[in-house]
Design a protein around this nucleic acid. Structure first.
Lengths: 201, 201
DNA sequence: AGTACGACATACCGCCGGTACGTACCGCTG
DNA sequence: CAGCGGTACGTACCGGCGGTATGTCGTACT
């Protein structure tokens, strides 16, 4: 039996508005944070009304999570490209590190994923979501290094969390620094030194 | 000239209500987060009205910052006691590390300081505030270790931020873990390994 | 005793998230 | 092609909550 799923033409109309809503949500949440962004204005920027918004999303929180996913999927894709070009596992990890620091400089990632998400979605939901995105990438890299014996034999989960925290803090430091350039040099030195210190010894 | 400042008896009445407000603010912000805590209920738990609240504080944000400071000062005091008993700088640092992980398990610190503060107070204000409290302690410890040559010669600011991030992430991991006990063992192993890796080599 | 001021209480406004309901348009069926 | 059901919105409204303006009571000071 062959089932041909025909995309309704109505969906061709519905999806663009949905995407427009997510886009303006990412914009406004980035600019003013979760509490500061009014749903009326999110809808206005997408040139629809709140009715449309509540048709596509369950509420403000659901809209935020959609924005969160949009940002994360984009980031993960770029991280994948940056790491795919490297050779050895160790080189891959370092390439990922640098790419991740770059990503953390972007306002949308900083505000939505790093700062607001834990408070808005709750710690557990935020953690679970991260698992499927950026943190998942870091975890994979760490796991690979531990398996191949490059890194010391430590519990992967805990190690990945600690390293991820160090990376995020470093990135935040760079982003908020009055002199991002020199700050980035300092942070990269520290992080690389930390990673070197983790090598099997 | 001798000036005797006589504490007005009115202040003896005003300060207890102020403290009661801060206390119930810490409670409610911990339970329901910043957005979920209604000022009316904060006042109600302190057995006053919103009028009293707005007499003592400029607004919700100011109240949050007062709660933030209350939590942090308490934590710093306990950290100081825990570290004062140790001998060498290295031992002091390790004692501080363990004490800090303990602190991070407390809901009030987790919710108010770690998760909500960056979003509520803004990243820069939150960073500046931290500087005067918990992060200041960590920074001091790191600076001491670098000066005495125990740690590698890295930029202190960046290093302190990275280590602080690693600690916070580790603590969050423990707090949110389904099995905090084993998680704590894992995290402590990782963090100690990271610190060992930072020793001058 | 009168007065000034601080420490609250009360009443009210405006914004915003959420809900209920109405409407236009599309695709399907007989 | 007429009628019908359902989807994709728009409109109108409610309620909660942060913030403000104003009133009141008690204390210290003269």
């Amino acid at each position: 039996m062959i089932v041909v799923t025909v995309r309704s033409r109505r969906l061709d109309h519905a999806e663009p508005t949905r995407r427009a809503l997510v886009d303006s949500a990412v914009e406004l949440f980035t600019e003013r944070g979760y509490a500061g962004a009014a749903l009326d204005e999110v809808a206005r920027r997408a040139r629809v009304t709140k009715g449309a918004l509540y048709h596509h999303f369950g509420g403000k929180q659901a809209l935020f999570e959609a924005a969160f996913e949009a940002v994360e999927t984009d980031v993960v894709a770029r991280l994948g490209r940056a790491m795919g070009e490297a050779g050895s596992p160790w080189e891959t990890a370092k390439a990922g590190l640098r790419a991740f620091l770059e990503v953390c400089l972007e306002p949308a990632y900083q505000r939505i994923v790093v700062h607001e998400a834990p408070a808005v979605m709750g710690r557990n939901r935020s953690r679970e979501a991260d698992e499927r995105f950026t943190f998942g990438v870091v975890r994979q890299a760490i796991a690979g290094l531990v398996e191949t014996g490059e890194l010391a034999d430590l519990p992967v989960d805990a190690l990945a969390r600690v390293v991820f925290g160090a990376l995020s803090a470093g990135a935040t430091t760079i982003a908020d620094s009055p002199e991002p350039h020199s700050a980035k040099i300092d942070v990269e030195r520290c992080v690389e030194y930390v990673l070197e210190g983790l090598r099997r010894r």
